[in-house]
Simulated assay, not measured.
Amino acid sequence: MSATTIHFVRHGQVYNPEHVIYERLPGFHLSNTGRRMAETTGRFLSLNPATQGVAAIYSSPLDRAKETAQIICDEINATRQEEEHDPLQLAFDNRLIEAGNEFRGKRIGKGEGALWRNGNWRLLTNLMEPSWGESYQSIAQRVRDFAYEQVDRYPGQQIIAVSHESPIWSFRHFLETGRPEHNMLMRGTALASVTSITFDDDSKKVLGITYADPAGGCAGRNTLFTIVGKL
């Protein structure tokens, strides 16, 4: 039986001193800590025997994801150069983009432009179904389309996909429960973490889901590698 694993990586920490809800806005880049996170996760992916031999790396087109993916790509290629493997080439896919959000440009906090001013709070009618933006069903569907396409394109191999918290968790929740709807406050997708999903190439059945937080030390978290689910 042939199986393909896709490693969904959340981008690293963003430099955002004004606490803006940046969503799909341009110009939000990794902080210094975020770059260290990406470097740490890149080394984890390049050196861990369980994640060797990556065939392709994709990224959301947003700045923070592109920067994270490029750093990871560079880390892997540095190892590959030593082992005389062909270098990876970073590609972009819009299906990995952050969820649409009507709060984009608002600030978390007080003052002009704050989230809670001008009646914005009225959009928060149900945390399980984001009345403030793109539905969880839509998010999970586009990530599933991406994943199934990669399984067909790279059977038996490993892929890296750098994305965002909502797309990664919505898809995972869909695979584990049969529905993408969830409480956004209960997600388990830390910055620069790796959610690895293994698919049977023929049936697309999920064979296992693992989670790693190699960059946890950069942000004061303690978890390094935890298997949290297996189907």
Rank of each mutant, 00 (worst) to 15 (best):
N118I: 00
V20A: 06
S2C: 00
E18P: 09
V162N: 03
G119W: 02
P180C: 10
R35N: 03
S31M: 02
I159D: 03
A190R: 13
L124N: 03
L185M: 15
M128T: 02
S131L: 01
R187E: 14
R35M: 13
H7P: 01
A190C: 08
N222G: 07
F225H: 04
E165Y: 06
R153Y: 01
R43K: 13
W132Q: 04
A114H: 10
R104K: 13
S196Y: 03
R153Q: 15
L62N: 05
F225L: 10
Y15W: 07
M186E: 15
H29S: 11
H164C: 10
H85L: 13
A140F: 07
Q150M: 15
P155G: 02
I6G: 03
P17R: 09
R10A: 03
V162L: 08
H85A: 12
L96T: 06
N120P: 06
S166Q: 10
I197A: 07
V14P: 10
R35A: 04
I6T: 03
E102R: 12
F92I: 11
L224G: 00
L127I: 14
K110D: 15
Q158S: 12
N94H: 08
Y211S: 05
Y22S: 14
R80N: 13
A192P: 04
G53A: 11
N48L: 00
G156L: 05
P49L: 01
R24N: 15
E165R: 15
A219G: 06
I57Q: 05
G217S: 01
E176N: 03
V151D: 10
G27I: 08
A212M: 06
L45S: 03
S196K: 02
R142W: 11
H7L: 14
V9P: 01
D213E: 12
S203H: 09
H7D: 06
F92S: 11
F199W: 14
A190K: 12
Q70M: 14
I209C: 09
G208S: 14
L124C: 11
E129N: 04
R153P: 09
R122I: 05
S163Q: 03
I227K: 13
M1S: 11
I57G: 07
S131H: 06
F225I: 03
S46W: 05
F8T: 01
T223P: 00
K106W: 08
L224C: 02
V162W: 06
E18G: 07
A69R: 09
A190G: 08
W169K: 07
C73W: 11
V194T: 01
R80D: 05
N183M: 01
I72N: 10
I227R: 13
F28L: 08
A219T: 10
E84T: 07
W132D: 05
T189R: 02
W121N: 03
K205N: 15
W169A: 09
A78H: 11
L30K: 01
R43W: 01
G27A: 12
Q89I: 15
I97D: 15
A215T: 00
L175A: 08
Q81M: 12
D202T: 13
G178C: 04
A50G: 07
R142A: 02
S203E: 10
G188F: 07
D213R: 04
N101K: 05
C218W: 00
E82S: 13
S196D: 02
R36G: 03
F103W: 07
F171H: 14
G100L: 14
A50L: 13
D202Y: 12
S203Q: 09
L124T: 04
R172D: 02
G27C: 09
A114S: 15
L207D: 05
G208W: 04
S60G: 09
T177Q: 12
I6P: 04
